[in-house]
Structure formats: structure tokens, C-alpha cells
Design a protein around this nucleic acid. Structure first.
Lengths: 137, 137
DNA sequence: AAATACCCTATAAGTTTAATAGGGATTACA
DNA sequence: TGTAATCCCTATTAAACTTATAGGGTATTT
């Protein structure tokens, strides 16, 4: 299951990407428009800012804005920041690899084999989908 | 993340699929071979039996066995029984559909759009992968 | 200086997962 | 016929994760 954190994060990014000008948008504006708990959204946007996806401006007239063009923001990046590993098991993860305790031979493991296939496909989708694609609705 | 339930389930099914003869195998045998908690595995195999994937035989010499040929057991079935929905959000699920509370227009939702693509791809893989494929190692 | 809006940490409620425990029912075989 | 093997079923629990909520701090603009 996709966490609400990621879901809300993608919605917020899409909202920002759809703006005509890339000027700061207050959290409260996004929160109301997308029906997202303000405080929860706050922490999500903070995470995206710390990871270089968003910039922010404090004080009156402040808010969050995209640091890159929508077409340059791949969903791989967004997913990894908000959701974590793209693969369903750590033993096939490229960025978050971990060996399984219970599994002696990875090459002979059915789960590994299956999940590697799934990861390859999912990764392709996330790589080839940018925020710009999601903003065309 | 894939639950351990599903992971263990697939491993157990693969173990059964690799047997020369399709005679009952005791839970304890699978448990030891695959390093899976016996009691936990027990509940998993029970679920698979209740869903028509496995048969069982009680008493001495009893155990679990496949009810169908490995090549006829699609991973879609196994995943849906053990893991639940294949899609990452309920609003794009074919078998477990649910509307989002926060989302007014599904067709215009970025998350929906993205996750529908992911589901399509993942579904194809699970459909085209049978237990027999996983047993060739 | 006052209002606005982001920044940061802590905490709590709710849910899910993974496992554990314990006993019941059935079957094979000596 | 009795006993060991083995599946069947329910309940409980411990840990982890998710989804918020609360409260105050800091910077900026007007």
C-alpha cells in the first residue's frame, strides 16, 4: 500500500506544478485545495525541501515552490524520498539493499526472482514519468 | 513492502512445487528447510488451503500438497490471497476497489494516474508468472 | 512591531504485522 | 486399540509503522 504521506506529497507537488508562475504557495492553500491535514502536509513538504525537491520562503507571502522544472522531476526521486525503497523486498533494492536472514542463496530464491522482475518494471515507469506528466490532466 | 506472510507463502509453494512427487509434505519439513516459524507458516498454509491452492492430509504421513500443476498457479492468485490488492491504492484496484475520501475527481488525480500504470504493469508480470517459473532455479 | 508563514520536536492514537500459545480433531500404524 | 504424528482453529501479544496532533520557535514582510 502507498502511504498517505506519499499520496499527499504527490498531490501537493502536482498542485505546485500546475501553477502558472512558480511563486511560493502557502501550505494552507495546498492543504485546503487538496483536503490534506495541514500539519501532516507541513511535515511532508519539509521532507521534500530537505531533499532538494522544493524550496521555501518564510514570512508573509511565503510558501513552497518547485526547485526544478516539472519535467525534470522524476517519480523515482519522489517515491524514494517519501515512500522509501521502490522494490517490495530489501534484497532486490538498488538503493536500500539488505540481505534476508532466512535466505541462504539469493540467486535461487523464488521471491527474489519474482520481485526483481516487478522492481525492474516499476522502476521503468517511475523513471519515465515526471511531474510534468502528472500535471497534464 | 511485501509482508513476510506473502514471502513465506511463496517460498513454501515453491518448495512444494519442486518436489518430484506431489505427496503431502509436513509443515515442519517446510518450516525447517525454509527457515520459517512453524506456527506462522501453519497459518499461512491454512489460508492457502482455504483458498483452494493447497490440499491437506491429516494424521501421520500427512501434510500439504498442491492442488494444481505449478504451471497453472498464477502469481496473481497467490498475491491476492496472501498480500491482498495488487495495486498500491484502493482507487485503482480491480478486485478491492474503494473510492478515496479526499479525492473529488478520480480522472484528474495524479496519484490515480500514476498508480494505474504501475498496477497494469505489475499485474502483467504476476499474470505471466506461474509457480512453475519460480521453481526453475 | 505585528502579522504571516515556515521550522522543528515530541507525543499519542490507531492500525497492521509477525509471531506465540494452547488445545482440539483426525489419521496411520504398530 | 492406543499412541504418536499432523493438521485445525482461536485468542493473545509484542513490536513496528502510520497518521496525525500539539505547541512553540524562527525568519520575513509590511
Amino acid at each position: 500500500m502507498l502511504s498517505k504521506k506519499t499520496k499527499y506529497g504527490i498531490k501537493a507537488l502536482t498542485f505546485l506544478g500546475k501553477q502558472e508562475k512558480n511563486t511560493p504557495i502557502a501550505i494552507a492553500v495546498i492543504s485546503k485545495s487538496e483536503n490534506i491535514s495541514l500539519k501532516f502536509l507541513e511535515s511532508i513538504l519539509l521532507t521534500l525541501r530537505k531533499n532538494g525537491v522544493l524550496g521555501s520562503k518564510k514570512g508573509k507571502g511565503g510558501g513552497y515552490y518547485l526547485l526544478k522544472e516539472p519535467r525534470e522531476i522524476q517519480m523515482t526521486l519522489v517515491m524514494r524520498i517519501l515512500e522509501g525503497p521502490i522494490s517490495m523486498v530489501p534484497c532486490v533494492s538498488l538503493n536500500f539493499y539488505e540481505k534476508c536472514d532466512d535466505c541462504a542463496d539469493e540467486a535461487a530464491c523464488a521471491v527474489h526472482k519474482l520481485m526483481a522482475k516487478v522492481r525492474d518494471n516499476t522502476l521503468q515507469i517511475f523513471k519515465n514519468t515526471t511531474l510534468a506528466d502528472l500535471c497534464d490532466c
